[in-house]
Design a protein around this nucleic acid. Structure first.
Lengths: 357, 357
DNA sequence: TTATTTTGCGTGTGCGCACACATTTTTTCT
DNA sequence: AGAAAAAATGTGTGCGCACACGCAAAATAA
């Protein structure tokens, strides 16, 4: 017996058959007498056989092509991180015969998504990892992939009815709840809080809408406690920051805003677009909560303009997403249908330990 | 060329030598002419050769015995988690020929530590993973292991002068800083905060002392801002909770305490020992910050008695600790001398996503 | 019965690499 | 110069497994 575990050979010897036979029962290839089959199975149990994954992969000599359908990371800084995670996973999985095809799309353009999704489909990969930012347009492709029997994993944006193999990412709703808590903590009522969306088409962006729902529910929950005073919530839909309307709307807010405005929750990773205005208006004490450890956000975190960031673990999303496919295809493991990554609370004091990784 | 990457064979062909020669340069086994060596190296570069780890491990057919010297997890709930992480890593690494020997010691008894450390040393393992709770007693063993050329990795407790291959765990100092921030947030001066140690021999417990230092430094830093009022810090050394003196000291504190006592920071995972007293005295509004997601802590977190927990990621400490040894021995990777795990801030709203994993 | 198919099982090769050993070439010594 | 030693290089086997193939015995058909 090998230094380090039971081998097919050991089972074969113990059952008085050849390794070929053991292999056949192991893989249900048939062509083995029932009584022998039972005996082999018994021996495998007795010896507590576990296949050597290294040898298996090496011997099988199979390869898997995985397609990744993701926003182009050269167009938006947030999307670098998931891609880094995907690349890391790809490196590790290379030895297992996994290769990755990238299909980047422009994250604001539906047509680009549709086109790249089409290309990914036509590449006939063994599995697909996708960030389905566009709700409506995604559904058709899900159907196509089901038809083609291609397993697909979602990340970043959860679409419950997608029938995907798995979803990897945050619970957007609960992250909204948490944002509410972080704004409210230590700020007694009465007070006003704002939720700001930047350049989002809320109707077609599931996970941003979910954040808002969680945010509102946190305060709704608080309101059930009669001892609490009343909090007021406002919402502001801002256009793309390059649009002159962006500055106009924001300065209007800060000019006319009631003194009670105690905090702003930015529903995306773009808190850094708002922070400069707070500095300009000397409203740094106003609590600002946003998402993700982008360079620019970190800057304002250290300047005490941004108070909290919720880390969406984008790198891990990519990493785990690809692994979910590999677990299914290569390692034949059970894959959980939802892998919720933690809602990391980031402050100036602990941010250091979340960088790089 | 193989479906999926360059093989030794490919390099050999391109350099007009045999695989044996390539192998020799790859492993610096010597016995190869300098010009040939250079040529082979060049070819490896050109083809961007990366050894197939699976084949390497399989072919080498080596095995590694790793010893783990850790507090007995049947004696203290905290220490279950690191052990789970170690077991998980052990399962994954089994295929790579790694086996794990466990040397549990009683976490309050120096003699037990000494004895098990001795046993671990005598087992002559290929590597050692150790939680060096006892500062003085550990040092002697570090020397012994260096002499025996056995690489060792520290977790949980960082001993800078240990000359260890790596440390995996938190930055205790910074976790104290963070605890300070979490207590102070939204609680204006004047106010009093307490740091409570439970059943610890501070003089011989490095990482608890570091937590206190960080905690105090946070407020020292605040004091440099003249706009801030004054915060008062107190310290309480409590005996083991089974000791009647524990209840006595705690009730005395709550009886006689000035109204300004606004928060308590428990320096270990035993916040749940203090929480019941706060409930009994109806002082739940007093902010309580502790460590780790133990059952009992979670209970009081949900009851709003504990406000924040700092997650020490104990499971990951074990997991990464073992992997640090494997990275060194099996995978021949560079191992960072410090692997600081993040300081997760846990509240009722995000705790769910940190459980299990 | 003999010829043919089916079923049950064993054998052999290759995956990419490590490592021991055999063989060839070069250097050194007498 | 030839012999011996040393250096440089090639060859072969095994790691545990998957998978194709081949061969025997049993079942079926002619």
């Amino acid at each position: 017996m090998g230094k380090n575990g039971v081998r097919l050979k050991d089972i074969a010897a113990k059952a008085n058959v050849s390794v070929g036979t053991v292999d056949r029962v192991l893989h249900n290839r048939g062509r083995v007498a029932e009584d022998v089959r039972q005996k082999v199975l018994r021996m495998m149990q007795e010896l507590d056989y576990e296949p050597n994954l290294l040898a298996r992969t090496l011997g099988a000599n199979r390869s898997y092509r995985l397609a990744v359908l993701h926003p182009d990371h050269t167009l938006d800084p947030y999307w670098e991180a998931p891609w880094l995670g995907i690349e890391k996973a790809a490196r590790e999985l290379k030895a297992y015969g996994v290769s990755v095809l990238s299909f980047p799309y422009a994250l604001t353009q539906v047509a680009s998504f549709r086109q790249q999704a089409q290309a990914a489909t036509e590449a006939q990969p063994d599995g697909i990892l996708v960030a389905p930012l566009f709700y409506r347009e995604s559904l058709a492709f899900f159907t196509a992939w089901q038809q083609a029997q291609i397993p697909y994993v979602l990340f970043n944006t959860h679409i419950a009815e997608a029938q995907a193999l798995s979803y990897v990412g945050q619970d957007s709703y609960q992250s909204g709840v948490l944002a509410g808590k972080l704004l409210q903590l230590g700020q007694p009522a009465p007070a006003t809080f704002l939720i700001a969306h930047i350049g989002e088409d809320i109707a077609n962006a599931v996970h941003v809408a979910e954040k808002e729902r969680g945010f509102r529910d946190y305060f709704a929950q608080l309101a059930t406690d009669p001892a609490q005073g009343t909090y007021t919530l406002r919402r502001l839909d801002l256009p793309d920051p390059t649009d002159p309307a962006f500055a106009r709307q924001l300065t209007t807010l800060l000019d006319e805003t009631p003194q009670q405005l105690q905090g702003i929750f930015v529903s995306t990773s773009k808190a850094y677009e708002i922070a400069p205005y707070l500095q300009a208006y000397h409203r740094e004490s106003l609590r600002l909560v946003g998402y993700d450890l982008l360079e620019k956000n970190l800057h304002f975190l250290h300047e005490n303009v941004i108070d909290f960031l919720i880390n969406q673990n984008p790198k891990k999303q990519g990493y785990r997403g690809l692994y979910a496919l590999a677990d299914q295809l290569v390692f034949k493991k059970e894959v959980a249908s939802i892998k919720n990554l933690p809602l990391d609370i980031i402050t100036k004091e602990n941010v250091h330990y979340y960088l790089d990784k």
